[in-house]
Design a protein around this nucleic acid. Sequence first.
DNA 1: TGTACATCAGTGAACGCGCGTTCACTGATGTAC
DNA 2: TGTACATCAGTGAACGCGCGTTCACTGATGTAC
Lengths: 203, 203
Amino acid sequence: MAPKKTYHHGDLRNALLAAALALIEENGLEGLSLRKVAARVGVSHAAPEHHFPTMRHLMNAMATAGFEMFARSMAEERAQALPTPVEQIRAAFRGYLSYARQHPGLFRLMFTANLLDWTDEALREHARLGYRQLEEICAPAAAFMGLQSEAERRSLESLLWSQVHGHAHLVIDQKLPDAADADCPFPGKPLDIAGLIFGVGRC
Amino acid sequence: MAPKKTYHHGDLRNALLAAALALIEENGLEGLSLRKVAARVGVSHAAPEHHFPTMRHLMNAMATAGFEMFARSMAEERAQALPTPVEQIRAAFRGYLSYARQHPGLFRLMFTANLLDWTDEALREHARLGYRQLEEICAPAAAFMGLQSEAERRSLESLLWSQVHGHAHLVIDQKLPDAADADCPFPGKPLDIAGLIFGVGRC
DNA sequence: TGTACATCAGTGAACGCGCGTTCACTGATGTAC
DNA sequence: TGTACATCAGTGAACGCGCGTTCACTGATGTAC
């Protein structure tokens, strides 16, 4: 625990994970390597092998931590919002987008196919924490819309998920003018689907 | 033109581009390299340098070709559909999604930040072809919804774009059960936002 | 129509780089007795 | 409480790999005259 200058690190696994989480935001997914992570921690490049045999193991640990932060980001926004269906959707979307904005590299890692080992049960469980947030905001909206079957509720979940997920991707890929984006060749700013569903305001 | 066994290739630039487009779908973005592209064409690894000084130049050419196919995919679906606002949106979405499904690697390349040089005017023009499709399907919908200001129209464009773009990403990243996806930890299938806007059907 | 020559496209060897991986090692930890 | 020893975490040198890049070269093309 204490940062003694000792031969054994003491908590190398967590230190490597933290370094990897920092590096992916600085250099992007491409710029990530086991050697760089080790260098950042100040440890020899062969040291990580005991804790993360391959890059894939490290990525799985990163994504697992990422999904936990992701779900918490949505839950925190929802806790501060009014408990009405429309405000709960808006709050969850704020949490979704603010997470993507703050962790664009990790966000990509979490959602890009073939990077992670999805047979890892810890990863699946943490990913479900995120999906649970979606289910919780969709249930009231589905009831409002008169959607009763399981299939219809699932469809609404996919609709809302696609909506916010697409928005998140367009923002982190600088295709929507989220901040000042001189390079962005596309105009436009987002519209409120929650308002559209509930007939609140004018989109 | 003719496939003669000659020292000079004759049309190496296009051959390299075609090889790169094939390789990106086989190996993904990560698996792409100038050496592999050259090898696929059957040319020495230094040969591409005359036509594409860096990987970035090649990627720009790939994305430019990609955006053209992308816009065509939407236009073709729309041409076969009824000219009503709701069917035009649905058709454009079909084109958007079918392009993403058929060219997932290229789709990622086209939309991921920092991979392309967006000061390239040819790239920008072809990308605008895609955005124009979006503008064309949005105008009638905006009129239907009573959106009159430029800002409101742009917002609707962003809404629809986020919707279909998120759906496309979730599909190519195997998060929505588009085909058989045993590994996918999330349930659900998409819902029809065009129907939602126009009150057609029951989503 | 033929010759000379400049231009250009592609070759193949060589370079240095960062990467993951292996391996014999060494220093610290912790347990058995 | 003290000693012996097994276990484990981290070291540092070495390996082969694919990569982009450079460079002197060579063969083909096309233009001038």
